[in-house]
Amino acid sequence: MDVIALVKDLINKIVIVAWLLFLLTWIIGWAIKGSPIPSSKIRRVGQGLIEDAVWGAFWVAIGTSIFWLISYISIALGNSLPQPPVPQLP
């Protein structure tokens, strides 16, 4: 039970940090992309950062929906959070 509480706590913290980080990375990425540095390689780094930040935000937003979908499918296939089968004594 302690493990589960710890994990839940960690999940909450990580979600908050992820949202903030997404914002931060997006800002930094646009800053690099739009900066007047002459090397195009560095500006491509900025482009990459923006893309990844947007993907991250996308996954955070629909993460819960996908997990709900997985458990819905498994319930539809016949198991809830699974009951272990009871073996009969030989």
Binding site: V7, L10, I11, I14, V15, V17, A18, L21, F22, L24, T25, I28, G29, L49, D52, A53, W55, G56, A57, W59, V60, G63, F67
Partner: peptide, 15 residues
Amino acid sequence: TILTFYLGVLIYALP
């Protein structure tokens, strides 16, 4: 698994 998922998202969002 949920933790792993959000960790992956976090790393995606790292600058």
